[in-house]
Amino acid sequence: MAKKQYAFYPGCSSQKGASASNYITSFGVMCEKLDIQLNEIPDWNCCGASIGYGEGGELPRMVLNARNLAIAEKDLPGQDIVSGCPACWLGLREAVDRLHEHDRLKTETNEALKEVNLTYKGGSKARHMTEVLIEDIGYAGIKAPVVKPLDGLKVAGYVGCQANRPYGIAGESFENPLYLDKMIEAVGAEAVPYEQKAACCGGALAFSEPEKAQAQIRQIVEAAYDNAADLIVTPCPLCQANVEIYQAEINKKHGTKLNMPVLYYSQLITVAYGGSVKEAGLNGQVIRAAKLDKIAGG
C-alpha cells in the first residue's frame, strides 16, 4: 500500500530536547504501522501560539502562519498540513480561514511574504493528527495493527480546549467530545467517565497566573482519581506539560499526593502496536506510567 503523505508541522515544543519531545518520539512506530508518511515543512517557524496576540497583532500572526503554509504549498504540493499540537493547528487553521474570507488580509499578508520571496495562494487544508487518524484511518484502522491490547488499563481521556474548540473534530460536540474515548477503546483500554475532559488547564496562563491555573489542574487530576483512572491521555502538548509538571507544585503547596501519569494518545497506540518503552517515549515522562511501562516491557 502506498504511504499516505502529509506536510508535517511539528511546532516548537516537539523539537528534540523540548517539552513534547516524547510526543514526537511516539509518532514513529504509530505512523509506520499506519502507513503514514510525515514530511516536515522545511525551515518552519513558530505559529505565535495562544499568547502571541499580546505583542503580535493580527497581521503579524497571520503572516507567521502563512509563511509555513506557503512553504508547504511550494515544497510539498497537494499534501494536507498536519500538526500534533492543537495551538499550532489552530494558528494554521485560523490563518487558512481568515485569509480565505478576507481579501484585504490576504493582500497584506502576501505583501509581507514578499520579504521572504513567498506567496500564499490558499487551498491547502490544516489538520490535527487526531483528525488524520479518525478520518483517514478510522477507528477500525487504528485498531487493526494492535498486537498488545491494553486490557485492564483505565484511561481518562482529557481532550482539553484547543483540540476541541473552536474548531474541534467534525461531528463531535464541544461539551462532550467522544473521539478520544473511542481512540482509547480502539487500542483495548477502558475509557473511564471523565467530567473534566473538556476543561481548561490554564494554558499559557500557567506561567503568568500559576495559582489560578494550578486550581484548574488540581480539578483535572482529581477527577481522574475519582474515576479510578490509571492515567490521563491528551492530544495537546501544553495540556500534557501543565497537568503533569505542576502536580508536584500542587502537592508542595496543598499537601496533596497527586501522582497521576499524563500521556499522549500516540504513546498508548504505540505500546498497543508493540512499541518499546523508548519507542513510545515513556522514558520521557516526569511521572512514569508504571502500568503502561510494564505492558511495553520496561
Binding site: C12, S13, Q15, N45, C46, G48, A49, I51, G52, Y53, G54, E55, G56, A204, L205, F207, S208, E209
Partner: peptide
C-alpha cells in the same frame, strides 16, 4: 503578569523564528 509573559514569548520567538 500575562502582559509580561506575552511580550517575553513574542520577543523569544522573534529571535530565531522558534520558541
Amino acid at each position: 503578569p500575562t502582559r509580561d509573559v506575552a511580550r517575553l514569548f513574542w520577543n523569544n520567538l522573534m529571535k530565531t523564528g522558534r520558541i
